[in-house]
């Protein structure tokens, strides 16, 4: 073996080995193996739900609403969700942002046509209300067009969101019955207010 080979043989082999190993690691995504980065909450996100009917609508509204609230506060939706989960007393700014986000979600869903008409939600709503059976039957007998003409889903949802005590909603997340009760009261009130406003408008 020549003197030159003795000086360069091992260094060249080492450079080839190191470049090969590091190169293969990088080519396979080494250096980018990191946790998911939160998406920009201000960019429109497609949301889906496994649930149908009112539950599905609520979930999509909440997911879009969290995005909107996070965008207003300038944080990621994940950071906002964790902040809400880790505090017993959300700040006024957080509650205002959440309410604003939910209302923006209603507007967005109306604009992209994913907000169902009121008639599509009536049967399920009546199942969970304590109206008497005769009244329920009467409402069910109404044609969909009449219901949709009398009640606008977006109007009812915005009124319900305005009426909801969001602090109590957040506190009741682990209590399904209390949560449903609270939402039912808000939605019923919103339906009444929406109908009264429509009648007043007609008069």
């Amino acid at each position: 073996m020549t003197g030159l080979h003795r000086w360069v043989g091992l260094p060249v082999a080492a450079v080839v080995l190191v470049c090969g190993v590091v190169g293969v690691q990088l080519a396979h995504g080494g250096g980018e193996y990191e946790p998911l980065r939160p998406a920009d909450p201000c960019s429109a996100r497609a949301v889906t739900s496994q649930a149908e009917g009112i539950d599905g609508l609520t979930e999509r509204l909440v997911l879009l609403g969290i995005d909107g609230a996070a965008c207003r506060l300038g944080v990621s939706r994940e950071a906002f969700t964790l902040e809400l989960a880790q505090t017993d007393s959300p700040s006024d700014a957080q509650i205002d942002a959440l309410r604003g986000g939910l209302k923006s979600a209603v507007t967005r869903m109306k604009a992209d046509g994913t907000l169902p008409p009121a008639s599509a939600l009536v049967d399920e709503s009546l199942d969970s209300t304590d109206l008497n059976d005769l009244l329920k039957s009467l409402i069910r007998a109404l044609p969909d067009s009449a219901i949709d003409a009398a009640l606008k889903t977006d109007d009812v949802l915005v009124r319900a969101i305005d009426d909801l005590d969001l602090r109590t909603v957040l506190a009741n997340l682990d209590d399904q019955d209390a949560l449903e009760q609270q939402i039912e009261v808000a939605v019923t009130g919103a339906v009444k207010a929406s109908l009264e406003a429509r009648i007043r408008g007609l008069v």
Partner: peptide
């Protein structure tokens, strides 16, 4: 390869550094 001792040590240091860079950037677990 019969390198001179100082080359052997220098290459050894370089290999350890390269190996540690490789361990810093695994593409998966």
């Amino acid at each position: 390869l019969r390198p001179p001792p100082e080359v052997e040590v220098a290459v050894g240091c370089f290999l350890v550094a390269g190996g540690l860079v490789g361990l810093a950037i695994p593409p998966s677990a």
